[in-house]
Design a protein around this nucleic acid. Structure first.
Length: 476
DNA sequence: TGAAATGTTGGGGCG
DNA sequence: ACGCCCCAACATTTC
């Protein structure tokens, strides 16, 4: 043990970065540092893939900075106090996590460490503003996005981005790290993540490079382009944000700066920041209304007549609903761990409104398959689409998958990419192959029901059934 | 961060 | 020349 300076334990969770990491920077300023990461419970399979690569990148950053990362199994609230005693650490620091489980584990650890007279200090690293700091004039939590976001923007304190510590002093200890490979985070048989590598580079470096590309070029077309799934005008930052590989405060400050200098138009820049705002709003809602993880925000929906035909759920998951834009989205998700935002709304609307399947089933599937799976975003967004969430889409807003396809994938590039069996259909029928005459289908080499499914439900029938179902709970 | 149904208007065909 | 009807095209309302 190094007695010449203080040792600080840094407990990492959703902040897998060295840049703008307040807990880490504070620890580094005091002396020796021991960064620790615990195996997370309840993560989905796609997230596991991401986590593996993200941790690998993080290990290498910590190694070269001089303070190797310690990977451990078990309960942090039990293990960290033991490690503090073994290493003689007098302080444990972490960045706050605002989910119910995150709050609980922080609270528990703080108490245990208090019992043995070890100090703790926690920081905000992952939000522009903490949920407890924003309330309406009536001192109640906001339930509508726009006023929330207006208020939020007024209260974000100007901050600087903390640079990554150039070098760290590693704490001396004889603890043995778990080998990353032993966590078996990667899929093996079958390896369904083959397509992930083509799209993603987990870790701080990958995050920084996405951000640079976005800020320097793509953001110029963000306002209108972000709705076109065939193009790549979105930032693609979501998984990096989920794992905390880039700081949302950095995004805020640099985008503000770019708008101030005129490099980025305020139309495009504000639109992007508003999406960051929705991320804040989701966390805010989950903080103030933790029950939304399993219960509808709008309690009228407790009696909603959800259906549960297993075959429909399976068809949706596998991208075999017979509606090309929906199937394209579900297949993109399966192959890349990601789905374009516009298409997420269409697919989610289809599941909850056309198939009348509970949003929780959709949320579960997304949780397992998305690399950017995030409890707050996933919960709040599914409830939003289903109509039972805060500031939700009105119940009668039912997407027509044909019109949505024709509007946002006019040339059909997106559908042709992910549903190649329809690639030879003319644009006119690409989003509704069932409407094509027999000879058109033959020319395109498509036999409906064989090469590509017939629609599993009829749009206008399903629409009416959804309206009827909503009618039942409207007055209750 | 919709879509469908219904209402209104105005140009042109036609008796 | 005139009025009637048809129906896009657009606007409004309803779900």
């Amino acid at each position: 043990m190094n007695t010449s300076q203080k040792t600080t334990l840094v407990w990492l969770r959703e902040d897998l970065r060295l840049e703008d990491n307040p807990a880490l920077s504070h620890a580094a300023s005091r002396g020796a540092v021991l960064p620790i990461y615990f195996y997370p419970d309840g993560m989905g399979a796609a997230s596991h893939w991401w986590l593996h690569h993200s941790l690998k990148a993080l290990q290498s950053r910590f190694d070269s900075a001089g303070a190797p990362l310690l990977l451990l199994d078990g309960d942090p609230a039990t293990k960290i106090p033991e490690i503090a005693e073994q290493t003689g650490a007098d302080l444990v620091v972490w960045n706050r996590v605002y989910s119910p489980a995150g709050i609980e584990s922080g609270k528990k650890l703080k108490q245990r460490l208090g019992d043995i007279q070890v100090n703790t200090q926690s920081f905000n690293a992952n939000l522009l503003i903490e949920p407890s700091k924003i309330l309406t004039k009536q001192e109640t939590p906001f339930k509508v996005f726009t006023p929330f976001w207006r208020q939020c923007q007024q209260h974000i304190e100007p901050q600087n981005v903390l640079p990554a510590p150039e070098s760290l002093t590693g704490a001396t200890h004889d603890l043995i790290t778990k080998a990353l490979d032993d966590w078996d985070l990667l899929p093996s048989q079958p390896n369904w993540a083959i397509g992930f590598d083509e799209v993603w580079q987990p870790g701080e470096q990958g995050a920084a490079s996405r951000w640079t590309t976005f800020l320097e070029s793509t953001v110029d077309k963000y306002k209108d382009g972000r709705d076109l799934p065939a193009k790549q005008f979105t930032s693609m930052l979501s998984p990096h944000l989920t794992f905390g590989e880039i700081s949302v405060r950095q995004l805020w400050l640099e985008m503000q700066e770019a708008m101030a200098t005129g490099e980025v138009s305020s139309d495009n820049g504000s639109k992007f920041l508003a999406e960051i705002g929705w991320r804040e709003f989701s966390r805010y809602l989950l903080f103030h209304f933790p029950s939304i993880e399993s219960e509808p925000f709008n309690d009228k929906f407790e009696d909603f007549p959800w259906q549960s035909p297993e075959s429909h759920l399976t068809a949706w998951q596998q991208g075999k609903t017979g509606y090309p834009i929906v199937d394209a989205g579900m297949r993109e998700l399966w192959r890349t761990g990601y789905m374009h935002n516009r298409v997420r709304m269409i697919c989610a609307s289809f599941l909850t409104k056309h198939l009348l399947i509970h949003w929780q089933n959709g949320a579960d599937w997304f949780w397992d398959t998305l690399v950017d799976a995030d409890l707050a975003n996933n919960t709040a967004s599914w409830q939003w689409v289903a109509g039972c969430g805060a500031d939700a889409a009105p119940y009668f807003r039912i997407f027509n998958p044909v019109l949505q396809g024709e509007k946002f994938d006019k040339q059909g590039d997106y559908v042709r990419r992910w549903v190649p069996e329809l690639a030879n259909l003319p644009d006119k029928y690409l989003h509704q192959p069932w409407a094509a005459k027999q000879d058109v289908l033959m020319d395109a080499n498509v036999v409906l029901g064989k090469d590509y499914p017939k629609p599993i439900v009829d749009h206008s029938t399903a629409r009416q059934a959804a309206l009827d179902a909503y009618e039942q709970i409207k007055s209750s």
